Amino acid sequence: MPLPHPEQTCRAWMCLLRAPGIGGVRLRDLLERFGSIDGALDAGPIAWRGAGVPAAAIDWLRTPDAARIDADLAWLAQPRHHLVTWDSADYPELLRRSPQSPAALFVAGDPNLLWHAQIAIVGSRNPSDGGRANARDFSRTLSRSGLLVTSGLADGIDAAAHRAALDVGRPTLAVIATGADLVYPIVNRELSANIAEHGAIVTEFPPGTEARREHFPRRNRIIAGLSLGTLVVEAALRSGALITARLAAEAGREVFALPGSIHNPLAKGCHRLIRDGAALVESAPEIVEALAPHAGQLADALRTRLADAGSSSTGMYDPLRSQQNVDPDYRALHAALGHDPVAIDVLAERTGLTVEALSSMLLLMELDGRVSAAHGRYALQRS
């Protein structure tokens, strides 16, 4: 995906994104008031004051740091570096609907993944061995089902979920609390590079922005806003994962939690979520089934976007079809199916896939109109 704007407009975006005290909501207001990002930058001090722009931001806009802006543009000019802005059709639909959406996203990797049907997997930075294993198992199965695993690149559950998706050859998306050119925590440097190569690193913070405590809740709202649902694997009662879950619920998204031992302090956050209305889940297919209708709506929004753009294909993912078209596991399953109904254990023998993985895959194929199911048996849908 090329830069969505000419260099002058990118420069205007960077000037306003770096202006102190101009957050995403205020910048979106300026876009509406002045008609475009160039109009907002060219409006001048009197118009800026009338629009409520803080004095510190006006001082910056009158004499921005040209060297800093040039460095930002140099970062954007590198391969697989992108700026996805609020006024672009490429801005992800789900995030646009979320409260307090950022005005722009910096992406290192594949920006098309922003439109993919996503499941956030979050939890403790210091999980139990069982929690880490659950994160890996759910991530693998959900990734194979066609959902994109999204998390925050933190140690613990986040890193386990990202690695598991990559291990099964699927992309993953990491939303971070620094500039896209930095890695926090540094121990995840190699993981971050792998995600940028095979998925996407996403942030609202310009290049060079270091980690600060107040950045992490802002990162969490993006994780929640991009995702159809959020799965909390393990979390203490005071946990950033619970913030992500709350933000997901406030955005009208699904929240899932894994139950645990009453003696495990890292299960207490999940138990509170369940008491507050989160769905208790014990297997990945339960999540796939709950999210499938929402994924279909996202697919419809993507088709509308492509139609509006006058294009049949832009390389964007169709959340239901793309995995089924190209994934070798789906091809093997399609070959194993016939027009005569067959039990899932027979399909497991024919394909070598687990029953759990097959259950998720068959559900998506059924929702997409490719498979019919009756009495626990599956067949290709007759055309």
Rank of each mutant, 00 (worst) to 15 (best):
M1A: 14
P2T: 04
P4T: 12
P6L: 13
T9A: 14
W13Y: 01
M14I: 00
M14F: 12
L16W: 01
R18W: 14
R18Y: 14
P20W: 03
G21N: 13
I22L: 01
G23H: 02
G24P: 09
G24F: 09
R28H: 14
L31K: 06
E32Y: 06
F34L: 03
S36D: 05
D38C: 08
A40S: 06
A43W: 00
G44C: 00
P45M: 08
I46C: 13
W48R: 06
W48Q: 07
W48M: 09
G50Y: 07
A51D: 08
G52D: 08
V53H: 10
A56L: 10
A57F: 04
D59S: 07
R62W: 13
P64D: 06
I69A: 06
A71C: 09
A74Q: 10
W75P: 07
L76H: 12
P79E: 09
R80M: 04
R80W: 02
L83Q: 03
T85W: 06
W86E: 13
Y91A: 02
P92D: 15
L94H: 07
L95R: 09
S98K: 03
P99V: 12
P99N: 12
Q100D: 13
Q100L: 11
P102K: 05
A103V: 14
A103I: 11
F106C: 05
F106A: 06
V107W: 12
P111H: 09
P111R: 11
N112R: 15
N112G: 15
N112K: 14
L113N: 04
L113I: 07
W115Q: 08
A117S: 04
Q118P: 04
I119P: 09
I119V: 15
I119G: 05
I121C: 04
V122T: 03
G123S: 04
S124T: 13
N126Q: 14
P127W: 02
P127F: 04
D129H: 11
D129E: 14
G131F: 01
G131T: 07
R132F: 08
N134Y: 14
N134W: 15
N134D: 14
